[in-house]
Write a protein that binds this DNA or RNA. Structure first.
Length: 345
RNA sequence: GGAUGGGUGGCCGAGCGGUUAAUGGCAACAGGCUGUAAACCUGUCGCUCCUUGGAGCUACGGAGGUUCGAAUCCUCCCCCAUCCA
């Protein structure tokens, strides 16, 4: 899922995403859209899909990640979390219930439960308390969501709670087990890629996965590098989102089938080849590395557009490859192949 | 010919007697980015040695001079900009 925090995937139009790249679901962010332009405005504009002219699905993150990662001034209360806006310093309160309501105002297809995303590392004791709070919030959010659903029988949106527990397998399992009791539409694994060594992230997914029902989608939040995507899938993950393809694109870091290309390197100054010979995206079909480098060095907007389009395409291609491998029952072989390529590279 | 203001490291531009190898910005080069406060952030950026830390050398248009000490003060010269003849 490409990340469109502020109701836009930076650098791409909705037509690029839906028609050209075939994106079926986007991420947007409750925290950012709540602060600006505001959930009531979005509701009055007919919901997020209409507001941003997006024809496909939208998953909204609850804002838990923002509240805990960027808001210096925050206070956890019995009701939720008090925090200050990064825009104007104003005081706000997020509760499990209110964040469900904001996401309903947006008209999201997949709502995420407010959670606490602890930093890394934290003590087992802190991680336990934090995880238990996340579970409590999930129960509240779920109950509230079910009430709202009863009030609007035609609604088809889903609610995902988020497994936490820092880097402690026992807490991860305990959390997952508690959340599974809610029998929600899907489950997310959060709190990964917060600074921990890469193998730990995978370990945590391994610990969690057996507890989560196979009939429901599992969503690993905020991951990962291209080589990590098959690893998560191998561990039972169905959905992922990550800012890497879009942010790194803008910062000059491009993902190709042959590894990374840091486009500012002098090496590409007069490189006439396309960015990725194996890529069918518009950028690779039309432009040379030398031109992309020139645009980057010149600070041209077109650079971000072309680079983002490519990186998103690369990520979608990887996921397509994975799906084909699974359908053709060759995923283990695919995984071996990807791993040996990574070792070689 | 005269008047005034200038010439600083690849470029622009501070500094105007010592703490200055010389603030900044740009460019160049490299590193980072994982539920986006990111078209962002960090580092290197005169030369030569050595292990961190340093050592030496060369530098603020040119040549002299004053001074313990000059990019900074003085003299002459060269060049640039604007204005007046």
């Amino acid at each position: 899922m490409p990340v469109g925090t502020q109701a836009t995937v930076k650098g791409l139009t909705q037509r690029d995403l839906a028609e050209d790249l075939g994106v079926q679901i986007l991420l947007a962010n409750t925290y950012h859209l709540y602060l600006r332009p505001g959930h009531e405005l979005i509701r009055s504009m007919g919901g997020l899909h209409k507001f941003m002219s997006w024809p496909n699905a939208i998953l909204t993150d609850s804002g838990g990640f923002q509240v805990f990662s960027l808001s210096g001034l925050r206070k956890i209360t019995d009701h939720g979390v008090e925090f200050r806006s990064h825009l104007d310093g104003g005081l706000h309160l997020f509760t499990p219930e209110s964040t469900v309501d904001y996401q309903l105002a947006y008209g999201s297809d997949v709502l995420m439960v407010l959670d606490e995303c602890p930093e890394y590392p934290v003590s087992h004791e802190y991680a336990r308390q934090s995880m238990q709070r996340t579970v409590r919030w999930a129960r509240q959010a779920d109950a509230h969501h079910r009430n709202r659903l009863e009030q609007s029988p035609g609604a088809r949106h889903a609610l995902f709670p988020i497994v936490q527990g820092s880097m402690f397998a026992d807490l991860r399992r305990e959390c997952a087990a508690a959340l599974v009791e809610l029998d929600t539409d899907g489950y997310a694994i959060g709190g990964l890629s917060v600074g921990e060594p890469r193998p730990l992230s995978l370990e945590m997914v391994e610990a969690t996965e057996p507890v989560l029902p196979r009939s429901k989608p599992r969503y690993a939040m905020g991951v990962g590098m291209p080589g990590e995507l098959p690893e998560y899938v191998a561990r039972g993950v169905d959905m992922m989102d990550c800012v890497l393809p879009t942010r790194n694109a803008r910062n000059g870091y491009l993902f190709t089938s042959q590894g990374r290309v840091i486009i500012k390197h002098a090496l590409y100054k007069d490189d006439q080849r396309p960015l990725d010979e194996n890529c069918q995206c518009y950028t690779c079909r039309s432009y040379s590395r030398a031109y992309l480098r020139h645009l980057f060095q010149s600070g041209e907007i077109l650079y971000a557009v072309l680079a983002t389009r490519h990186n998103i395409r690369r990520y979608l291609d990887i996921m397509r490859e994975i799906r084909h491998a699974i359908i053709s029952e060759s995923f283990p072989e695919y995984l071996r192949c990807v791993r040996s390529a990574a070792d070689a590279g």
